[in-house]
Design a protein around this nucleic acid. Structure first.
Length: 501
DNA sequence: ATGTTC
């Protein structure tokens, strides 16, 4: 029997807590399901469920378990407070957290969405093969780096008026398609059609608008990227064929969010909801869990503003996709003709949505908070576009820089186990600070280059912060959700070139 | 993630 104990970061002072093993807290349900019992902390309304393999459990922080337990104390939570295999410490709610709250008796919390509202990812396929692209890869990446503004505080070459910003907040990708960015088909291949109704720009502050206006069509920083990839392996030929994927094919992936706009909207409303938590007498185990009753004006104002940021983020990824398509056209269309650059799908990783789920055999409406988690709806779900209704929803899981990304597919089991949710990515294991002090950007770049992966980034330190070794293995995380059955593996994608913020 | 320490 292997004894797995919890290892704290070095800077953390030794205390009696360091003696606690995760086995002292968690109850094993099956190989990939561990329960935080309802008695772990006084005030938990439901147990926690952490979906990890034995190995991933060994690197799970105790604080992440505490965050799962804290969320279980919030009013109106349904079934379980959950954490996906890529879970790690976040603001209030863990990243990788999934929690559903009753529409009438539950709460809405910005901490359950995160600062980067609708951070998400989209995958675009092409008709090109790996060997078509390799000879021109360097030039392609240079041109992409030129076309797509990256980095903190980067500004777009797209100028939108104040009135257009309202239109973007309300109509999302529909605005972009009407403007000539992308095509109508793209709308169907975004989660929620790239536009959630109910967004209200009057709930967005002047400051958030000011930050958001110049940033539409910018990649941002951190783990955000634009990656040129190829399909390395197909796990399910039938599903892959519906998604238009085959071995050797070149794809590109865009991972980014709502930039300064979403960040400011979260900051603004956190302030209001911190007051509201007191006003409505909600006992908070952690002030970062600030929230309000779902139907209160405070919670609804946040929700309506959050939807503005969500719609903005879809447009952001859409505009970046448009410019990327243009660069591919410029580089390859003369030689290869129609490049077939169809959007496979676009998923949100940080969002709260009002959805219908079955709880205790009854259909009920809940606010599902997914923070670093992906919707993974089942075959036949009415929210899916016609062409994917038979397969289930494509679930796009980006890897960390230089590692594999995955395409999975939603299942019936995800609806039963995890409110139609799966994991979102690799999950950090080393802080940005540690990564910067322990790793050197140029060395990481060199190591990736030896693996045939070219990186373009504004600063070498950013490469160090996002090095492969600072993340959990994406394949390990994906195997857990596949083995649990909450999403099914379809294809593995390997990077050829990365544009970093 | 983030006008990276309101």
């Amino acid at each position: 029997m292997v004894q797995i104990t919890h290892f704290y970061q070095e800077e953390r002072s030794m205390s009696e807590e360091t003696e606690i093993s995760v086995f002292d807290i968690l109850i094993k349900i099956d190989d990939n399901t561990w329960e935080v019992p309802i008695g772990y902390k006084a005030g938990m309304h439901v147990p926690g469920r952490i979906f990890v393999s034995g190995h991933l459990l060994g690197i799970l922080e105790k604080e992440t378990i505490d965050q799962v337990a804290n969320v279980a104390m919030l009013p109106g939570i349904q079934k379980y407070s959950m954490a996906m295999p890529d879970a790690h410490l976040g603001y209030g709610f863990s990243i990788g957290g999934v929690a559903a709250f009753d529409k009438e008796n539950g709460i809405i919390s910005p901490g359950g969405v995160g600062f980067d509202i609708n951070c998400g990812v989209r995958l675009i396929r092409t008709n090109l093969l790996e060997n078509d692209v390799r000879p021109k890869l360097s030039q392609l990446l240079d041109d992409l780096f030129e076309a797509i503004p990256t980095g903190v505080g980067s500004k777009s070459r797209l100028r939108v008026s104040d009135a257009e910003l309202d239109d973007i907040f309300i109509n999302g990708v529909q605005w972009a398609v009407d403007k000539g960015y992308g095509v109508k088909e793209d709308l169907d291949h975004c989660e929620s059609g790239g536009k959630i109704p109910g967004a209200d720009p009057s709930k967005v502050s002047a400051k958030a608008r000011k930050r958001g206006r110049p940033q539409l069509g910018t990649l941002g920083s951190g783990n955000h990227f634009l990656e040129v990839q190829y399909v390395d392996e197909i796990y399910d030929e039938e599903l892959a064929s519906v998604f238009g994927l085959h071995k050797g094919q070149v794809t590109f992936m865009i991972h980014c969010g709502s930039r300064g706009a979403g960040h400011q909207i979260c900051t603004d409303h956190l302030q209001v909801l911190t007051q509201a938590s007191r006003k409505y007498n909600i006992a908070l185990p952690d002030k970062q869990l600030a929230c309000a009753p779902a139907q209160s004006p405070e919670a609804q104002d946040y929700f309506k503003a959050m939807l503005c940021a969500a719609n903005y983020a879809w447009v952001n990824r859409h505009v970046i996709m448009h410019w990327t398509r243009e660069v591919f056209e410029k580089t390859f269309a003369e030689e290869f003709g129609d490049l077939g650059m169809h959007l496979v799908y676009d998923v949100a990783h940080n969002i709260a949505k009002l959805e219908e789920h079955t709880v205790d055999g009854k259909k009920t409406e809940v606010y599902v908070h997914r923070k670093g988690a992906t919707r993974a709806f089942s075959p036949g779900h009415p929210d899916l576009p016609d062409d994917y209704r038979v397969t289930g929803q494509p679930v796009i899981i980006p890897g960390s820089m230089g590692t594999a990304s995955y395409v999975l597919c939603g299942t019936k089991e995800s609806m039963e186990i995890s409110f139609g949710s799966a994991c979102h990515g690799a999950g950090r294991v080393m802080s940005r600070k540690s990564a910067k002090s322990e790793l050197h950007g140029e060395q990481v770049r060199e190591e990736l280059s030896l693996k045939g992966i070219q990186v373009r980034a504004s600063q070498p330190s950013l490469i160090a912060e996002e090095a492969p070794e600072v993340y959990k293995s994406s394949s390990e995380v994906v195997d857990v959700v596949h083995d649990l059955g909450i999403a099914k593996k379809v294809a593995k994608l390997l990077p050829m070139g990365v544009i970093k913020g």
